[in-house]
Design a protein around this nucleic acid. Structure first.
Lengths: 203, 203
DNA sequence: GCGTTGCGAAACTGAGTCGTATCGAAATTA
DNA sequence: TAATTTCGATACGACTCAGTTTCGCAACGC
């Protein structure tokens, strides 16, 4: 054997265009960001927006749902850098990226799809959660575990419940809160209120 | 004037069937509960399911969105009876109806629509919020105000933030929580945790 | 150069939907 | 009874879209 085979032998013929592939994914996300739900998305609109023939899409994905699943899966969760000192500050940092994202139409609409069409397209949600939600959960879980170990949080704290309180509050504001941008100090206020509790301070 | 005119003079001809109207609304809600988003809903499917001609629908609503708006508006918020003694118990009662609702497909899917298609159909959301969300908010706000006044809650509490913590946590569980039914004591655990705070008890 | 494969554009089939119109029957008032 | 309005059913034209096929051209290995 003198000839080194490439690991994936390149088949004869013109190779598939990576540019086209990227354009298709991008057009899909853009249309979603403009407010399309999965069912309003049409392959024809995607092809047109991407400057691509329908053939090129169907050669890669066998149907619309597969395409959308792949498109959403390309979205990575941008995790903020965590100072790693104060648990409070790290929690604020984690919550604040949620707040910032609600101002971006792409994030907003993706969230809408995942929230609203979860039951109808389980594969979509499953994969999106794995890529975009799970990493954040893990990060927050680690921060809180650190807080429990280091005494900054209650030693018998139910960490999952604590995460639901923090994330849920921010989710609530993005959905039902006052119109317009969320206040810049919202993450801070949520974290402090959750840490302190609603009950009056024991005098 | 010897003849008393009815306030709304009945016009000649066959009167509109209330039964048909109810059947249309019901069919709409059923189709939504089966997982249809607004755009997947077709007037033809509604007519067929309701056992009604399309004409009968178009005579009452001029388009699909109007119909869906009316259908969702018929859903009233079932408010639990509040004992009015312990603020903690009342908050638990309020949260627990949220938990129970996630087990009902109709409530679940309506929630999905309102959450996921809010940006696309603002009129729909607006009206639904007024009918179904606002009454609960008001009830919870009153309970918390009572708690502040009565010393059960911190005197300088931001009531809106407190509501976001409680409702948001439950919302979070319904969306991202473990599959299957939510634990029966979830509302209780959320309320107690929120009241106490995550920070360790000051020794 | 030759064979192979991907490319975008366009045409096509078939299904589904909207909103309107028309039908004969039924329900109601006058 | 006559006039009016609604009823459910059905048909219609216009439109959108999915998914396939065909076309002539481009990009690659050999």
């Amino acid at each position: 054997m003198t000839i080194q085979e490439p690991v994936t032998a390149r088949p004869a013929g013109r190779p598939r265009s990576e540019k086209a592939e990227k354009a298709i994914i991008d057009a899909t996300l853009d249309l979603i960001a403009e407010g399309s739900g999965v069912s309003e998305l049409s392959i024809e609109a995607i092809a047109s927006k991407a400057g691509v023939g329908k053939t090129t899409i169907y050669r890669r994905w066998s149907n619309k749902e597969d395409l959308v699943v792949d498109a959403l899966a390309t979205l990575r969760a941008p995790l903020p850098p965590l100072a790693g000192e104060s648990v409070r500050d790290d929690l604020i940092a984690l919550l604040d990226v949620m707040r910032q994202e609600t101002g971006q139409s792409r994030s907003r609409c993706v969230m809408n799809i995942v929230m609203g069409e979860a039951d109808r397209y389980p594969r979509l949600t499953e994969r999106f959660v794995k890529r975009a939600v799970e990493p954040r959960r893990t990060a927050m879980r680690e921060v809180m575990a650190r807080g429990v170990a280091g005494g900054e949080l209650s030693p018998d704290l139910d960490v999952e419940l604590g995460m639901a309180l923090l994330s849920g509050a921010m989710l609530w504001y993005t959905k039902w809160g006052p119109a317009g941008d969320l206040p810049e100090d919202l993450a801070e206020r949520i974290v402090d209120q959750v840490l302190a509790g609603l009950a009056p301070e024991p005098a």
